[in-house]
Design a protein around this nucleic acid. Structure first.
Length: 511
DNA sequence: AAAAAAT
């Protein structure tokens, strides 16, 4: 993984309105971490690739001491002394709390039970780079809010799950940690990680997603929640909260997964802000973590605003530069084709079989209706594909996901319900049958594009994306995407040539 | 347009 060879840079910013504090200015960089050859690290680095990173300057490198560096800026404090060529993750800490990077889990004062979960269940050996940086910021008092950006497939989930588990007091039988996710699938997936990592801790948890019909209990008849960690979707959480079934009085940590989406999208934003305000009212000290691979300027401004409006507290940040965000390990292609109908032929004749050879495939389309159209034409032709979208019954959604997770199905057609966060290591191929587009505009949806790409190449694995381009609008969208991420998607020269597709996959390192 | 969710 090339990104491991880059360095960490950190910068210190000052909280607004604290003047006259001393600002020692230094920068430190960390060189490539030595790789362990046996077992897995916490982030499950691609195990099929022999790691050949030499243990260079290991002994000579300075550990990144996250507090004691660089300048404070009076405004937002994004100023750093980083070498722009060399920085892939940047931490901006706020205030005077010194943060020391966590080279081992023992550095973090975790309970023995949690450590056992990390080593035995998760098979982690030591913190990854983003964990090394973010965990001390999460776990060091005073507990400050954190806005954390990290690459797709780099293990954000394990970061905030570990954060929640270690901040919960196992002896207090009340909700203390809350995680809000954009989809039920993501909530379920995060819960699975929590159960695994927290297996020996005895910490209790509950999913807050709508129950299916036979398990439905009216909220009024529900007993109050006494579980310590709650993970769910905004509607259900908000419902429980309003009905006073979910007490916010002991809440210590609130996590927004895919935070940019949760805070920016209408429909999500209202619930998210409502929950946040409600928690802060009864639990003003609650720590808020915002995690995502993408934070655009509008979201950043909003985050800054809510901090001013609601908390008036300073917050820490960790982020990645836009140019370094698109995954190097996933090769992106464009396929020109004459019309929409041809897209189906291409998927059928060129992509499906090749895709099955290299693992599993997700095909993204724009609308629920398009999933049905594509699904039917492929099934009619005898192909075994399944489809997921938000209008399906929960049981069906669960079944489709289960079958895909178990490897019983190889090709999944999906709306953007799976664009974010869905983690299935066997997905090596992503097809954008439609490019993602911003509602009511001709602009591409850059964030969604990046998240879709990120469904392949989990944890540094190889992957490929085929973008099907059939008219001027597609072409324009693709050009904008390339420009935005400063990449050049390779062209599959002829959609009619099986060899060209074969070639594309081999260039992506998949065959 | 899609996502969540409750009506």
């Amino acid at each position: 993984m090339e990104s491991d060879a880059s360095s960490i840079t950190t910068a210190k910013s000052e909280p607004r309105s604290t003047e006259g504090e001393s600002n020692a200015s230094t920068t430190t960089t960390a060189t490539a971490e030595p790789k362990s050859t046996e077992g897995r690290r916490w982030a499950d680095v691609a195990d099929d690739e022999p790691e050949e990173v030499p243990e260079t300057s290991d002994g000579t490198s300075t550990p990144p001491d996250l507090g004691a560096m660089t300048i404070g800026d009076s405004s937002r404090g994004n100023q750093t002394l980083a070498d722009p060529e060399d920085s892939s993750i940047e931490a901006v800490t706020s205030g005077d709390t010194p943060y020391k990077s966590a080279k081992t889990f023992e550095d973090l004062n975790l309970s023995p039970e949690l450590l056992k979960g990390l080593y035995v269940e998760m098979k982690f050996e030591r913190p990854s780079k983003i964990q090394e940086i973010s965990l001390p910021m999460i776990l060091t008092p005073p507990y400050k809010n954190l806005v954390a950006q990290a690459h797709n497939g780099s293990g954000k989930t394990t970061c905030f799950v570990l954060g929640m588990l270690s901040r919960v007091d196992p002896n207090l039988r009340a909700p203390q940690a809350l995680c809000i996710c954009p989809t039920r699938e993501l909530a379920i997936q995060n819960m699975e990680v929590l159960l695994k990592m927290g297996k020996y801790t005895g910490i209790t948890s509950i999913l807050a997603i709508p129950a299916d019909r036979e398990h439905y209990v009216p909220v009024g008849k529900m007993p109050p929640i006494d579980k310590q960690v709650v993970i769910g979707t905004p509607g259900t959480i908000s419902k429980w909260m309003t009905a006073k079934k979910l007490s916010m009085s002991f809440m210590k940590i609130l996590v927004f997964d895919e935070a940019d989406h949760m805070l920016a999208e209408s429909g999500f934003q209202d619930d998210s802000v409502k929950i946040m305000k409600n928690i802060l009212k009864s639990s003003p000290q609650c720590q808020i973590l915002l995690f995502s691979a993408t934070f655009n300027d509008a979201v950043r401004a909003f985050v800054d605003k809510i901090h001013k409006d609601l908390f008036v507290r300073d917050y820490n940040q960790m982020f990645v530069k836009k140019e370094e965000l698109s995954l190097d390990s996933v090769k992106q292609y464009k396929v020109y084709c004459p019309d929409e109908l041809t897209k189906v032929m291409i998927i059928r004749d060129r992509i499906l079989e090749l895709g099955e050879k290299v693992g599993q495939t997700i095909i993204f389309v724009r609308s629920r209706n398009s999933t049905a159209v594509l699904h039917n034409s492929l099934v009619e032709l005898g192909y075994d594909v399944t489809t997921i979208q938000g209008a399906l019954k929960q049981e069906d959604r669960d079944k489709i996901i289960r079958e895909f997770r178990d490897g019983l199905t190889k090709v999944l057609i999906s709306t953007d319900v799976l664009a974010r966060g869905f983690d299935q290591s066997q997905v090596n191929l992503v097809v954008n049958c439609d490019l993602p587009i911003r509602h009511n505009s001709m602009e591409p949806d850059y964030e969604t594009y990046l998240h879709r790409v990120g469904r392949a190449g989990r944890f540094g694995r190889k992957g490929a994306v085929f973008n099907l381009i059939c008219d001027e609008r597609d072409k324009m969208l693709m050009e904008k995407i390339e420009k935005h991420f400063n990449i050049q998607a390779a062209e599959v020269s002829s959609w009619q040539s099986e060899e060209d597709f074969q070639d594309a996959l081999s260039k992506a390192g998949l065959v």
